[in-house]
Amino acid sequence: MELELRGGVRAAPVTGRTPRERQALRFAPDPRDRTADPGHVATTARENEEDGLDSALVVQSSSWPDPWLVGSWALAATSRLRIAVAHRVGTTAPTVAARQLATLDRLSGGRVAAHVIVGSSDLDVARDGDTLGKADRYRRADEYLGLLRRSLTDDQEFDHKGEFYQVTGALAGLRPEPGGELISFGGSSPAGVELAARHAEVYALPPLPLPDTRRRIGEVRATAAGFGRSLRIWRHLTLVLADTDEAARRRVQDLRRDALRLTSGPDGPRFAEAVALDRDRERGRVPDQQAAEQVAAYIRRSFATAYVGSPATVADRIGSLHSAGVDIVQLDLAVETDQDRELRRELVSRLRTGSHRHGW
């Protein structure tokens, strides 16, 4: 089966005044403020499509533009690109989400899916009025996804009375295009794996060394088989590309230096308030550090886990992931200049060699 190549669509450009600054700040935690730029959404979506990517993710946070609306704008600007919209359980009723998903799927010709999340930060979900702890959010997600699925498939009215949701006479008047992958889900905990196995078509794999990746894929697929289901596997990758491996390593040094400098200046507090750092603080990853050092530690981790090299070298590493069982790779890289696009296109071309396109 061919490897699906995924990009991303943001509601607005990355923070930074120049292409060089934006390239560096992709490795910093995203500030909470983000506007909605219609030209950027449309252009980025078209570039994803033109450069040979199959799909793109629209991300979500409590203070960012609505991902369903950003996703619909990206879909309207393209004819082939599929869009996975990040959707957090708890922000709307499951029957409403089912109609949103089915409507956008129909309007786009079957090109949309929901990447369901439970929220990795207690503080961030509380900003939208969700006060449940993470264990309760997972339990609610099971009920939520069951109701969402039922709303997408039942052709008769139904009632439901559960722990978190009650509906009477629920019925959606439209269905998604048949045969699509509508739901993806991530989560490295046993609860997250089971939720994906029960409800999703795609499992978002956490970043792990290759032997652990193989082992986790085996566990996930075995869990899904226990429910009589199968899952495709998605892995997000941060990339730094250049014409040669040595040039890519030099680029990492330059970008890291710029990112650390830019986030320690007058704009530093914006980055220290990022949701990604809320999550790190709640997990105890940075309990004793000052805000500036928390940002710096995040940047160093981002570069440490990146795939760095020429398109040929990075394509070989991604090929190893594909051989291990990964079906979808998200190519997360700075695309600010014509050279950036040329490098991405070369990588895509190498990954396509000897393969056939996979339909959703």
Rank of each mutant, 00 (worst) to 15 (best):
A222K: 11
R198L: 14
A274N: 07
S184N: 03
L210S: 10
Q23T: 11
G109F: 03
A292V: 15
L237Q: 08
S188M: 12
W64Q: 07
A76T: 05
L107P: 00
R283M: 14
R216C: 01
V295T: 08
R82Q: 10
A306G: 01
R137Y: 02
G325M: 08
E49Y: 04
G90Q: 01
V85H: 00
G71L: 03
Q289T: 11
E21N: 10
L260K: 10
S108L: 00
T95I: 09
S55T: 15
A170G: 10
V112W: 03
D258G: 07
L171F: 07
F164W: 06
A84Y: 07
A272T: 07
A24N: 12
L148T: 01
P269H: 09
G186S: 06
D338V: 11
D243Y: 00
V326C: 05
Y165D: 03
V116T: 08
D316Q: 15
V193Q: 11
A225L: 11
A248R: 00
V240H: 03
T92D: 13
E163Y: 03
R150W: 06
G129H: 02
L107D: 00
A141N: 05
D37F: 07
P13K: 05
D51P: 03
D327N: 14
D66Y: 05
R10N: 13
L239Q: 05
V220G: 07
T313R: 15
F303G: 02
E50D: 14
S63W: 12
P13C: 04
V335C: 13
A306V: 07
D33R: 15
T15W: 11
H358K: 13
L260W: 08
P266E: 15
